[in-house]
Design a protein around this nucleic acid. Sequence first.
DNA 1: ACAATATTAGAGAGCATCCTCTAGAACAGG
DNA 2: CCTGTTCTAGAGGATGCTCTCTAATATTGT
Lengths: 209, 209
Amino acid sequence: MARPPRFDTDQLLDAAVRQAAASGPAGVTMSAVAKDVGAPSGSVYHRFPGRSALLAEVWLRTVERFQEGYFTALESDADARRAGRAAARHVVSWSRAHPAEAALLLYGAEDFGRADWSEEHLHRADRGSRRVRAALASLAAALGAEGPRATECVALALIDLPLSLVRRHLRAGTPLPAHAEDLAEECTTALLSSLPGRTASPSKAPATG
Amino acid sequence: MARPPRFDTDQLLDAAVRQAAASGPAGVTMSAVAKDVGAPSGSVYHRFPGRSALLAEVWLRTVERFQEGYFTALESDADARRAGRAAARHVVSWSRAHPAEAALLLYGAEDFGRADWSEEHLHRADRGSRRVRAALASLAAALGAEGPRATECVALALIDLPLSLVRRHLRAGTPLPAHAEDLAEECTTALLSSLPGRTASPSKAPATG
DNA sequence: ACAATATTAGAGAGCATCCTCTAGAACAGG
DNA sequence: CCTGTTCTAGAGGATGCTCTCTAATATTGT
């Protein structure tokens, strides 16, 4: 007993992603999103209580969609080194498959107005980052390297480094080259092989790389 | 035969840097800068023809100040590997010494309205990036690795990776830890040691690439 | 002292955006 | 058909920002 929606939430968020990729988080205005899908601004406000909510949702949806495959890759292999390589590849290939959403990932939650988010949105964000931190720490432990410094190095290898590669090309406007996944994997391998405190020795499995 | 300025260019640019570090490039508004130094908006427009010019100047001044020391580090040593390590350290230590300006470096020229820049500003920007590309390519060649892929890997090792380290802490709001320079150097060393096509050998040697 | 000039000072027009508000349209169920 | 709910539709106020314009002011050289 209700009128079916002409513009649903995902449709609006898709438009928000396009805007963010094109003009940055600041370009995600309620009117820009409305115009993008051909809706009046009232329809956008019907779905989201305000701009902060829209920004939070578009950021969280993107991050969660990315993390979905990322965790799968991270847990794809019992060997920590191989799992790390798979994760690095995933960052690049996911970005290749979803360039607009990848452009979003290059920003941070602060750029999407985290300061104005609701409790619930903050909670969702925290949940995600805690999960990432835990996975990275456990992978570092599996590699035999513990402590915050090792975890930081693993984070650099498995997240920041592949993202840098993507950022470089998105900023330049050039498409990701075909060998980008290989390059990311190689670089990650190199970093993991020189973890502080260790040089190279498997956790439970043999194999170096 | 002229009245001395109460608010000079550098003072206004310093305020712009503070604003950009605090609220991103979008937060650099003419009125925010004016209020920051306690000047009326007219004084800001007396120095800069418009917002695009202010954004261009603050971006270029920051990049050029950074590059000044960066190139010195890159050319500090005839051995390419040592020079690369010095460059990576410089990225981190400069960011530690100039946190607000480092926050700016984490953005890109596009975020500072490059699309609206004057010919001259575009020229200054191009000049800088050409010089960086040249230095990286020459360092890659000195390492015996040629081709765009090797250059890209060197860029990752000498720029993006140390910047990622800085970004991680600036985003989190935590200060750069004392060992950050060491960590950057180690990671860069690891990457340089595994350049595509090579593994390890001195500077002028034949090359595979 | 006087003229010339660079600069401050700030009001206000023009514009875009965020958000509110009211009116009505489309559809499911009785 | 009729009722109730969800949603579209878009006008309009409030706010904030860019930029212009006029007038006043401080300083130097003569």
